[in-house]
């Protein structure tokens, strides 16, 4: 029953988010601020992880290809498929649930604890719109992060596979282009947009409706990470089933 209540509360919150709008000029500044904090602030860790995970995927694939009948170009093919289909959109989103999600929950939760949200409401401001809508808008730029993650993942795979002596550059580039299906990219970006919405709203829900003090802000951040990850994984399964099977 508690879960049903929370799900209902989440959708009522969403209705409020798209309810009475905050003044345009104020909203515009807030969106740019959120893009800076949520998106630009995550580029470092996303780039770092993408490059090295791409490299590891390439090395592990190369080390497991012992059969001489299997072409070496398969290393690049396997790296491309795993990076585009799962690693960049899903794995990076789980990382973002920890980084961006916790930040969103703790910042909104702190505002709840220190009565800043009450202050907004007393002033006649739709606090859900003021706080959550700019985050959703900022997260619409999330596909760019994932595109960069895909590029760096493949760059990492190339670096490890070619400079590690597993394949030649030509073999890698051939494998990279083998059986490329454009729809896989479409699938990956549809997932990414849905994940962006989840990353902005589920942590916001946990922050907005938290009760208590500083300790509870920490607890809410942890709970938020767990639930955001769960929702991401379930959504990933449903979307994959719908679009690829």
């Amino acid at each position: 029953m508690t879960y049903l209540y929370s799900i209902g509360e989440y959708f009522i919150m969403l209705k409020g988010v798209f309810g009475r709008m905050t003044k345009g000029s104020v909203l515009r500044n807030l969106i740019f601020k959120e893009i800076n904090e949520l998106i630009m602030g995550s580029m470092g860790i996303v780039s770092f992880l993408s490059f090295f995970i791409g490299a590891v995927v390439a090395i592990q694939t190369a080390l497991n290809l012992n059969n001489p009948l299997i072409p070496k170009s398969l290393v690049a093919f396997a790296a491309r498929q795993s990076i585009i289909l799962e690693f960049a959109p899903t794995f990076i989103s789980i990382i973002m649930a920890g980084k961006v999600g916790s930040f969103i929950t703790s910042s909104i939760g702190s505002m709840r604890v220190t009565e800043q949200i009450d202050a907004l409401e007393v002033m006649g401001i739709n606090s859900k719109n003021y706080l959550i809508f700019p985050k959703i808008m900022a997260m619409l730029t999330y596909p760019f992060v994932i595109a960069i993650s895909m590029f760096l993942g493949i760059a990492g795979a190339y670096t490890a596979a070619v400079f590690g002596g597993f394949v030649t550059s030509d073999q890698f580039l051939t494998g990279l282009q083998d059986d490329f299906i454009g729809f896989h990219l479409v699938y990956a970006f549809i997932k990414t947009i849905l994940f962006a919405f989840i990353l902005a709203t589920v942590p916001s829900y946990h922050g907005y409706f938290m009760k208590g003090g500083a300790l509870e802000v920490g607890e809410a951040s942890t709970t938020s990470f767990v639930w955001t990850s769960v929702v991401l994984i379930i959504t990933n399964y449903v979307i994959t089933q719908l679009l690829l099977s």
């Binding site: 003044k23 220190t114 800043q116 202050a119 002033m123």
Partner: peptide, 27 residues
Amino acid sequence: IGMLFQGGALFDSMTVEENVMFPLRMF
């Protein structure tokens, strides 16, 4: 309505000037 909260409830991401200017910017 003006409201003075027990803890002040100032927006901690804004400067003093921005905090005071906030109702003017909004309304």
